[in-house]
Every structure is written in structure tokens, then in C-alpha cells.
Amino acid sequence: MQTSLREDILEAILCLAGEGGSPVPVAEIAAQIRSKPPTLEPVLTEMVREGEVTLQGGAASLTDAGMERARGVAHRHQVLQCFLSERLGIDGPSADQEACRLEHQVSDTTIDRLSEFLEKGGHGPRNRGGTGGEGREGGSRPLTEFPEGEAVTVELISCSHNLPRLLDLGILPGEPLEIRQRLPNRAVVVRVKGCDIALSPEVAASILAVRAA
């Protein structure tokens, strides 16, 4: 339990801190993983002692070691969620929750094999056109990870039930987007159906996409 909470915290900091690695307030971390700051504080103190995180003025940032571990967790989550929803047909929200539980137990070898399998298998049936637009670096990545000007196709939106506005604006799996702008904090502007839409980092991070062909 403790390990999985720690990994959740690492993942949350990675997701919220952006590239600059700026410190993330504990309250934000708590909100991200649906916990409360008092629950997190003892765990964070322990993580500081073990050199994964530094705490300063109620905000946490990742150390290099913490960053490496966080990236690993995030990668496991992505691969698992992709597998669960694309291959097994588990619906978006459940796949996300399921991936959250599995990511803490699964071994790296399994993840590597699974990732390879997903890439070979190509796209799920939802992808319109089927022109093989996978990124070379191993399938889908969050929108926050693409450079400006990149044309991408949405693969998956995690926690989409929290973000109904995305549906209204036409940001759906299979939809082509263009990354118009991105700020150092990873907030992005995407162009969809000719309209520019600004997304907070946490929203952009929950949209997984592949580079368009």
C-alpha cells in the first residue's frame, strides 16, 4: 500500500511539475490522486529521507532519482491503460483505475513485452483511416510531450468522464490535432476543427496521442 501510494505521489508530481521541474504544492498532489495532504505528509517526509523528493515550503519537487522512478511508473500506467482499453475493450474510466492498481505490481519485463506487443499489433479498431501513424518512440504519449507544430491524432483520453467539455469541442479518440503553442509549464494550445483550444497541463496530460502520419 505504502509503495503504491509513493508511486502515485511520484507520478502526480511528474505530471504536475512540467518540464522545468518546478515544485508542486502538496495540496495539488493530494487533489490529483484524490487523497488529503495530512495523509501524504508522513509519506513525503519518508520519501525526502530516501532522496526521491525534496520538500520546500509545502511544495515538492523530484530529485533525479525520483524523476527516474516517476517516469517508470508513468510509462507502466500508459502501457497498461492502452492495453486494457484498446485490446481488452475495458471502457476508459475503468481501464484508468485498473491501470492505477496494476502499475504498482507489474514487472519491467512484462511492460516491455506488452509495449512491444501493442506496437506490433498496430492500432485499435477506433483509429480512423488506419494509416499507421504511430510515434516511433513507442506508441502514444501525452499531449504535453509533443513539440509545437506537431500534427497528432488522439488515441485515448483518460478520466474523460471528468472532461465532458473535450467531447463538445471535438477532442475525441481518432481526432487529428495540431499542437499550436506550449508554455514551459506544459499548458498547451491545440487546434481542433479550426479552433484553438487552451488546455491546463493536467488536462493536456490526460490526452494521449500519436504523431500523425
Binding site: 495540496a27 495532504p37 483550444i197 491546463s200
Partner: peptide, 18 residues
């Protein structure tokens, strides 16, 4: 900073048409 901790409810990010 205090209110972020104690105010109940979920936080949603911004999805805003430019």
C-alpha cells in the same frame, strides 16, 4: 494557499477556446 487545502470539491483544469 490555505483555501486550496480546505475547500471541498474537485479541481478541474482549464479547457478554454482561444
Amino acid at each position: 494557499l490555505l483555501l486550496t487545502r480546505i475547500t471541498p470539491g474537485e479541481q478541474f483544469g482549464m479547457i478554454l477556446e482561444i
